[in-house]
Amino acid sequence: MRYFTTTVDLKDSELDHSIYVQCLQLRREVFISQMGWNLYQHMGCEFDQYDTPASVHVVALQNNAVLGCMRLLRTDNDLGNATYMILDAHLGRIPNLPSGIMDEQIQSQDTWEASRLAISSRVPTSERNAVLVDLLRTGMEYVATRGGTSLLGMMNPVFLRVFRRAGLRAYKFGRIADQRDGRLCVMKLDLEPGAAMVAA
């Protein structure tokens, strides 16, 4: 399966907005149509309070069609009554997400959050790990160019094994929480020292 990964920055004046819209449509399919989560949607798109110009989106593209996407947000983000999704969940501010899920609260320019990961069913099961890891690597490269050193995510704990097999430095960063659709835990991925220089 041939595809490439890139970032979509809403502040980019030459941004192809159709790619961003496809990300939001894919998210609607996964989180609302498939999972039945009670999230806000409008015009076939799912978006929330964290989809601001401060967020950056990593996409996997095949012939200009989005195969997968993931949202990045710096953890010192301040949206008035919200910070970033994992911390807000940790603090009990997000219904249907478990609270008390982080080993420690992080709000730092060095750490970014990856959230709203969605992958199209067009990606065969056998290639989903590769698409996911490519999205993460591209996200980590972007974070490195912005001076970041680590990435937080919230996923099923089996992904720790996937990331470690792929050579990423991933570890559990909180308790495993049982919730409606299975188990979740916060994980932290540390960027390789010098990753910023490589990415730059």
Binding site: L26, F31, Q34, S120, S121, N156, G182
Partner: peptide, 14 residues
């Protein structure tokens, strides 16, 4: 295993 692992991440989308 696949159902549990990718549930919540993968959706029908063309």
């Amino acid at each position: 295993y696949t159902l549990q692992k990718w549930g919540g991440l993968v959706g029908e989308y063309t």
